[in-house]
């Protein structure tokens, strides 16, 4: 019996009367849900697929539309809340469909294992608009192991006074790790902020600084 079991609320035709009506063997629902995700993908009715992966900086939620990876979220962002935001901003047709994120998950594994320096997956930037999107697009170009300051990023995107807005754009990056906002630091070399927490930011910088 699973935690979502509702046998306690069933009536006279319940366990005492017909145990086999209410008992669901382990694994049955999991199989059905996997098959559903597959069929829904094939028939083009699944707008957002997601999966949760383990990493040295905690569990990451990966979500993709048919255009590409649209969201990477740290545990501290609250994955349920992130999915709810995706439902409201993009589409509620969301299912856990690990197969559709196989490539992104594999590349992240390689990155954390020190075997990959850049990501080669299509990105869907539809959660970023305007100036934030411009910043995100610039961040995509900062190479592995290199850092820039918020001031340098502001200058690079042609708006040298917008240092604070660059900070906001980094803090709201919908694709952390893959779009490397962790490579942006304060001018004095201190960390600044990070959507995944400063510990995660340090861990990524340390990973990239390793010989």
């Amino acid at each position: 019996m699973t935690s979502t079991d509702r046998t306690s609320r069933t009536g006279p035709v319940d366990l005492a009367f017909a145990p086999h009506l209410t008992a669901i063997e382990p694994g049955a629902l999991h199989r059905l849900r996997s098959a559903l995700a597959e069929t829904a993908t094939r028939e083009g009715v699944l707008d957002i697929a997601y999966r949760i992966v383990d990493s040295p900086v905690g569990q990451l939620l990966l979500a993709a539309t048919d255009r590409g990876l649209v969201r990477v979220a740290y545990e501290r962002e609250d994955h349920d809340a992130v999915l709810q935001q995706l439902a409201e901003r993009l589409s509620p047709r969301i299912l856990e469909a690990p197969a559709r994120l196989g490539s992104a998950a594999a590349q992240l594994d390689e990155y954390f294992a020190g075997r990959r320096r850049g990501f080669d997956v299509p990105l869907d930037l539809s959660l970023s608009a305007g100036f934030r999107r411009t910043v995100i697009q610039h961040l995509e170009g900062i190479p592995f192991g290199v850092t820039e300051s918020y001031t340098e990023v502001a200058r690079a995107v042609g708006n040298p006074k917008a240092v604070r807005a660059v900070g906001t754009a980094c803090a709201t990056n919908p694709l952390p790790v893959v779009v490397p906002c962790h490579r942006v630091l304060r001018s004095d070399g201190s960390l600044g902020g990070y959507i995944g927490g400063l510990e995660a930011k340090s861990a990524l910088l340390a990973l990239e600084a390793a010989p």
Partner: peptide
């Protein structure tokens, strides 16, 4: 509009719907 991700519906009601289908 506070529509939940569809996955939530499967999680919350998948077992009940399966019982109903079986019956």
């Amino acid at each position: 509009d506070t529509k939940q991700p569809f996955e939530k519906l499967v999680e919350l009601h998948g077992a009940t719907v399966l019982r109903v289908c079986r019956a």
